[in-house]
């Protein structure tokens, strides 16, 4: 993520970094495989949500997962852990 800070005058006296989504940018660009959720198979167990290292899976109101592809690194843990195989890893195009 590039910063809007430009001038020394705007800097704090010592590095005090602000909590930010995307502190390392859009980490979804690291992905080579993309998790796809088959909602018809999903049992809303939320296991994929709790094991996502990237906090890239949101647990929606009905407990179904929503993957934020801007930040999902495509590790595949969600697919590996899904007890009903409702998540598959698909190769990213291009």
């Amino acid at each position: 993520m590039s910063s809007s800070l430009k001038s020394r005058k705007e800097m704090p006296l010592t590095p005090l970094s602000s909590p930010s989504v995307g502190s390392m940018g859009k980490t979804g660009s690291w992905r080579t495989f993309r998790p796809e959720v088959d909602n018809s198979k999903c049992t809303r167990c939320t296991i994929c949500w709790i094991y996502c290292p990237d906090a890239a899976i949101t647990r929606q109101d009905d407990d179904s997962p929503k993957i934020d592809y801007d930040y999902c690194k495509g590790c595949g843990i969600c697919a590996n852990e899904c007890p009903v195989k409702a998540i598959t890893m698909e190769r990213e195009e291009g």
């Binding site: 930010s20 502190s23 980490t27 709790i50 996502c52 290292p53 906090a55 930040y71 590790c75």
Partner: peptide, 23 residues
């Protein structure tokens, strides 16, 4: 559902410690 480890962090894909941090 609150997250205090925010997405878009710099851990490797599949990082075990990151899961632990969320927990």
């Amino acid at each position: 559902k609150e997250e205090y480890l925010l997405k878009g962090h710099a851990a490797c894909a599949g990082c075990g410690p990151s899961i632990a941090l969320r927990l």
